[in-house]
Amino acid sequence: MQLSTNHLLGIKELSIEDISLILSTAQQFKEVLQRPIKKVPSLRDVTIVNLFYENSTRTRISFELAEKRLSADTINFAASGSSVSKGETLLDTVNNILSMKVDMVVMRHSASGAPHFLSKHLPHTAIINAGDGINEHPTQALLDAFSIIEHAGTLDGKKVVIIGDIMHSRVALSNIYLLKKMGAEVMLAGPPTLIPTYVKEAFGVRVEYNLKKALQWCDVANVLRIQLERQNQVLFSSLREYNLAYGVTRKLLEELDKEILIMHPGPVNRGVEIDSDVADSRQSIILQQVENGVAIRMAVLYLLAGKKEG
């Protein structure tokens, strides 16, 4: 019983068995998090570095909490204010940290493929991708899947629509891989300028440019953040216009003949991709996603640390 991989680079590299193992282990960690003492001694002798080359609140805190709940020792590294600004390369930085006897690396980087590059040079150190450029964000997809299963019982046959900036979203790509592997039906919705034309054939997903039709089709809507920092060219005319065409509003949801589950990976741009009364409604599970994130990251760290010498 163990993962087929030494690193968590992306959902693409995981087998169905790996995903099931992570999800079932996370279930047990979720119970741990509800105890009076929310901590287990599993990783008592493991040191983990959190390398964040890009800003993050949720993911960094979530990983840090997961590490502490597992009793691991942690070091935090932010690129700003480090020797990175003096020109040190990624590999040199990591090798220097590892020479101080660090066992695992959690990394977020703005360059797609950065964790893959590291894993090739450091095959014996577990590398965990906490988001790489516009490629993948595997722990987010795992916690999304966990949250859907918690509410719907299964992923198999569920209809999930991912709404928004598909082109720049690592959350979308990881979710597509995971949902397809686990038997869910996937639809991508958003403005044509934000959905690459090849996705239909490449991933076997549906594409819908009309938000109302997309919501009518789905069981679960995963609403992505409009990433203002990645909009280098103008792909829609204004946030106001985006909201009018693709914002998920209470009115739209009330027009449906069923109640769908609303998800969002955060941080939420209220009044842009989702309205406040939807984000805070009973059918929104945004905060449960955040809660489940700690359990998922505990499962990933635990399973990879256990593999280290195996």
Binding site: M1, Q2, S24, T25, Q27, Q28, F29, E31, V32, V40, P41, S42, L70, Y302, L303, G306, K307, K308, E309, G310
Partner: peptide, 21 residues
Amino acid sequence: LDITFYRDDFRGELHKANKTD
């Protein structure tokens, strides 16, 4: 009670975690 996360031999072999209730 499941004791998987408290084992002293988890480096040797990972065990499947079960429910604690």
